[in-house]
Amino acid sequence: MAELADDKTRAVGTAPEPADTARPGMLARALDSDLFYSFRRSPVTVVSAVVALGLVLSAVFAPWIAPHNPFDPASLSILDSFLPPAWAEGGDPRFLLGTDDQGRDMLSTILYGMRISLAVGFASVIFAMLVGITLGLVAGYFGGFLDSAIMRVADVQLTFPAILIALLIDGAARALAGPRAYDEIVFGVLVFSIGLSFWVQYARTVRGSVLVEINKEYVLAARLIGLRASTIMFKHVLPNVLGPVLVIATINLALAIIIEATLSFLGVGVPPTQPSLGTLIRIGNDFLFSGEWWITIFPGIVLAVLALAVNLLGDWLRDALNPKLR
């Protein structure tokens, strides 16, 4: 029905896009945009986009491209444990990057581990966005007591580093749930604690933009025709404040992946039975001194490359969307 109304307004001639007669496809328009031009002009960005996309895709399709299934105990053999990478002396061509202490293929565990790291990262960023955007919209739109209450909490939280807040929430959840139940809810707890340590940035950014948008005529018009506050906030104001949110989300994704890896490395994150990249590095760290460096170094490199690529993309996006730098 919404589309119908949309078409009607276009037919009347008040269409926002003048190119209505020969509307180019989404892809063509995207390729023709300023954003894509600045993307093409920066080789570093193109490379990091390719790398990030490649890593994300190989994580998503891990079950199909991984040479082994590291979670299938039947296929593991203790005889295969601690094998070095295939090119090193004593390496086995079946295991390109070597094997860990349980005889699991490193390449496969890394692919599966990246899947978990990325899943936790994306989920926590989405959770933080939902909480932060909602609170920011409410604070900016309604103002008054709600505004000062939300922003005061944000101020206090902002003085503490995200990792500390995530650690504390994690510790409290562990205490509340008990050790056995904790293992079952660990992903939820991680998403919750990482996400909750990020919401402030979104709330502040959205609130700031809302304070600007709220005085514009389209909001006034929407109020005049009697739209509900929630409709105005989410359908009309929100799309206009999403630019900066996107930038924060990209940079936060790298940070979320790093925090998840750090928590898992510290032993308060993902358990070794379902290892993320951080858990793998933690496991490998025990064997670093006995010479089995590949167990910790390879997951470390993948984590670093992933974080760096996403960070560079975020940097580029921030500059590209910032009108001051044009």
Binding site: A254, I258, A261, T262, F265, L266, I281, N285, L288, T296, G300, L303, A304, A307, L308, N311, L312
Partner: peptide
């Protein structure tokens, strides 16, 4: 840039 992107524990390791 690398110092910002690498997690602390990885630098230590």
């Amino acid at each position: 840039l690398i110092g910002v992107s690498l997690p602390t524990f990885l630098i230590g390791i």
